[in-house]
Design a protein around this nucleic acid. Structure first.
Length: 471
RNA sequence: GGUGGAAUGGCCGAGAGGCGAGGCAAGGGACUGCAAAUCCCUCUACACGGGUUCAAAUCCCGUUUCCACCUCCA
């Protein structure tokens, strides 16, 4: 039996995962800056780390999962001006949009989801500590800076040299001891929201909040820190700087997810709104979008295309369809079980693509068993597939997806109606009146109802549109 | 300029010295009244040039192209 190995950005190697405290795992994931609706790149990060979390849970760990919300920052303030709304209303609006998107994709809610603005007290305490330790300074303009040259380990995550960094075009050297020193705290500008501190009123710098909140919820030292690749520098580098300057052990392991790209490039606003989560959910179900986003390895770029998404949906429906048929045949939902091949793949730095190959194998065996009527093989396959889908967060029987097997009044009525039509069709087929039987089937097809003749008799399902439109 | 990543069959996407992951598409076949679904078979790929090795997609050297980060980024 294999054991979990994970990659670590800091060492750039894959190594056995050992938690600080047996049976417990603490994860901090950098969440969204809530200044615009989520696009699929944002939620890919959520899905990737949700799969990690689920796998850790399945492996028997008690996982404390923190994902923060950055609800105060320059972009939010700009957006507030643009939308003629208070900054906090803008932040709330987009935070809800993110929450909805995560929910639609069955991303488990974090254990705690701290907002930056709710942790100013912790941030001030951290700054105080940093100043006392001589690592940070308040030059009197209301800003507070971290003195990066005092840190041996600065830039070890991104493996850069301090002197190689290009200095920011707008760097203000008046108050900084070194251009590369970064702001822990930013002095208030007229009209902007601010919080009082011993060094003057202002608002948090982006990096400070994560160090403060990680410490507040996970302690000075914790197991895994995650985020998108683009956060390595400066964000995570600066988090390390702050936390280590404070004397904290901080994150033992760093995991970074790659981007969703479009036309080979990192997704950005210039690509328009079409890749926003709520837009894509008009073409595929949440479970299918999740399947797509989760199917590539988390450290690989995922090149988005509507065609690939549609194709991925079709593949998922094949699996789903087998599970639903297994329920019809066996009369009960499958019991989630994990196959060895799946376990080994997941333990190998969450090798989801390899894990999917094991699902395909089970699917093939299961479908063959349906043809041959071997119920025990059907059950084995269905159980293993459901076990795998559960870890991937794509279990069709998960109530989160309000699955296809609902049995409300409308569904019951519809099922009865269609079965009536199918009975007519069967009668026509028996008397070899294929013109009539085909007319019934064509009629149903026109209504979006797909008929399949199986060894167990005809079955029906609602056909789902696959809109591979665009480009 | 610095740092990091990538190039795999029609497409998507794994792998990381020897046994051709998997999916989708396409073609053929089985089953079927016909479809659909399902199963079987086929389609033998690793940017380029050198090198190491019995053996290279994988290691080494060089080259090309692309992407990202360098204080807004999932």
């Amino acid at each position: 039996m294999s054991s979990l190995h994970l990659y670590d950005t800091l060492s750039r190697t894959t190594s056995p995962f050992t938690p600080l405290k047996e049976g417990e795992v603490g994860i901090y994931l950098c969440g969204a800056t809530v200044q615009a609706p989520p696009h699929i790149g944002h939620v890919r990060s959520g899905v990737n780390f949700d799969i990690l979390r689920r796998w850790l849970m399945k492996s028997g760990y008690n996982v404390t999962f923190i994902r923060n919300v950055t609800d105060i920052d320059d972009k939010i303030l700009h957006k507030a001006v643009h939308e003629k709304a208070p900054w906090w209303a803008v932040a709330m609006k987009y935070e809800r949009a993110f929450t909805d998107a995560y929910a639609a994709l069955n991303v488990l809610p974090p254990t705690y989801e701290p907002r930056a603005t709710g942790h100013v007290t912790q941030m001030i305490a951290l700054m105080q500590l940093l100043i006392e330790r001589g690592m940070a300074y308040a030059p009197g303009n209301g800003d507070v800076y971290l003195e990066v040259r005092k840190l041996e380990s600065y830039l070890t995550l991104s493996r850069q040299k301090l002197d190689d960094l290009q200095s920011a075009a707008d760097a203000d050297e008046t108050f900084k001891r070194d251009v590369r020193d970064f702001a822990l705290w930013k002095a208030a500008k007229p009209g902007d929201p601010s919080w009082p501190t011993p060094w003057g009123a202002g608002r948090p710098g982006w990096h400070l909040e994560c160090s403060a909140m990680a410490q507040a919820y996970l302690g000075e030292e914790f197991d895994i820190h995650g985020g998108g690749l683009d956060l390595i520098f400066p964000h995570h580098e600066n988090e390390i700087a702050q936390s280590e300057a404070a004397g904290y052990g901080f994150a033992k392991r760093w995991l970074h997810n790659a981007w969703v790209t479009a036309s080979g490039e990192k997704m950005s606003k210039s690509l328009g709104n079409s890749l926003q989560v709520h837009e894509l959910l008009k073409t595929v179900r949440g479970i299918e979008l999740r399947w797509y986003l989760g199917s590539a390895h988390y450290r690989s770029m995922l090149e988005f295309s509507h065609e690939a998404l549609a194709e991925s949906s079709v593949a998922f429906r094949r699996i789903e369809s087998f599970l639903l048929r297994s329920v019809e045949i066996l009369g009960q939902e499958p019991t989630p079980v994990l196959g060895t091949a799946f376990i080994d793949a997941m333990n190998d730095d969450l090798a989801v693509p390899t894990a999917l190959a094991s699902i395909s194998e089970s699917l093939r065996l299961g479908n063959s068993a349906i043809t041959s009527g071997n119920k025990s093989v059907i059950a084995t396959s269905a159980n293993e597939i459901r076990g795998a889908l559960e870890v991937l967060g794509c279990d069709p029987f998960d109530p989160a997806f309000a699955s296809a097997s609902t049995s409300d009044d409308v569904t019951t009525a519809l099922d009865g109606t269609i079965k009536l039509a199918l009975a007519q069709r069967e009668a026509a087929r028996v008397r070899k009146d294929f013109e009539s039987s085909d007319a019934i089937r064509d009629g149903l097809t026109a209504l979006g109802i797909v008929i399949e003749d199986t060894a167990q008799g005809p079955r029906w399902s609602i056909s789902r549109k696959t809109e591979g439109s665009g480009s």
